[in-house]
Amino acid sequence: MENRIEHLLLMPALTGIRSGKALLLACLLMLPQLSAAQASGDTTKPAPIQVITPEVEPRTIREADIDAEFFEIGVFGGLMSIDNFSSEPLLGVSAAFHATEDFFLQFNYGFTEAGLTSFEELSGSNVRLLTDSDREYSYYDFLVGYNIFPGEIFFSDSLTFNSAFYLVGGVGNTEFGGENNFTTTLGTGFRIVLLDWLTVHVDFRDHMFTSDLIRESQLTHNIELSSGFTLFF
């Protein structure tokens, strides 16, 4: 009786041991297959990312900058179209103070000599509305300028200059025909900085004042187109 009971109690333990041995044996048998599967499987690694370095050759550009000084002085010349008269050569001098990078103050003095009116040309040499001294035209003005489009201008791959479009406006006086007339001036211009001490300007301006030479209280527009050089100091 005892032997039968011991046999019944030992059967599950023996069965568990046999099952564990069988499982271990199965794992050992599967190892070569797993190794072969890994060896024959797709083990391709992703290709490394290729970094493309652009072949850019740096170039050296010497760019002209405005000098550390704030004052400039220069000369200009061009044409002055005097209202009711002809267009005549114009000469003048200018000086400016650059208060900031955007704003500047400017003084200009210019002079020319008016020609004949259309009435004088049609009437012949016997009719003259003004004497020779009265035909001398001169003006001075004080203007405030603002750089609206500062930038650069490229002449070649290695030649670059600073430049700026600017607006000017102010007041002054015009002496012409024996009159001294309060004058309002509006205009625009373009500046190129050739060197850190040298600039070139192109200016277009309208000098407006009321005159009684031809008709009573006539508002005249006297158009100036000029160009010049200025030096910084």
Rank of each mutant, 00 (worst) to 15 (best):
T53K: 09
C27E: 13
S35E: 05
S35F: 14
I66W: 15
I61N: 03
D42H: 02
R59Y: 14
S35G: 10
L31W: 07
E55K: 13
C27F: 15
D65R: 10
Q38T: 06
V75W: 14
G41F: 04
P32M: 00
Q38A: 13
F70K: 08
A64E: 03
S40M: 09
A26W: 07
V56T: 07
K45E: 14
V75N: 05
S40P: 02
D42I: 01
A39E: 13
L23C: 12
I66K: 10
A47T: 10
V56K: 10
A37T: 04
D65S: 09
L24K: 03
A68M: 03
T53Q: 04
Q33Y: 03
A26P: 00
T53I: 09
M30W: 13
P48L: 15
A39Q: 12
I66G: 08
R62V: 14
Q50V: 07
V51R: 03
T43S: 14
E55P: 03
D42Y: 01
K45V: 06
V51M: 06
A36H: 11
S40G: 11
L34F: 11
A39T: 07
E55R: 10
I73E: 01
P46W: 05
L29Y: 05
E63N: 12
I52T: 15
T43F: 15
P32G: 00
P32F: 00
L34I: 04
E69G: 13
A37S: 12
L25E: 12
L31C: 04
R62E: 07
D65I: 06
I66M: 12
A26N: 05
V51Y: 07
G41A: 03
L31Q: 07
I73N: 00
A64I: 02
F70H: 08
A39C: 07
T43H: 06
P54D: 00
G74T: 01
L24G: 08
T53M: 01
P58H: 14
A64H: 10
T44N: 11
K45H: 12
D42R: 02
C27Y: 15
P32S: 03
E69L: 09
I49H: 13
V56Y: 11
L29Q: 11
E72M: 09
L24F: 12
T44H: 04
L28N: 02
A26L: 06
E69W: 15
Q38D: 08
V51Q: 07
D67P: 05
I61Y: 00
P32I: 00
E55Q: 12
V56E: 08
L23K: 15
I52C: 12
R62K: 11
E72L: 03
K45I: 05
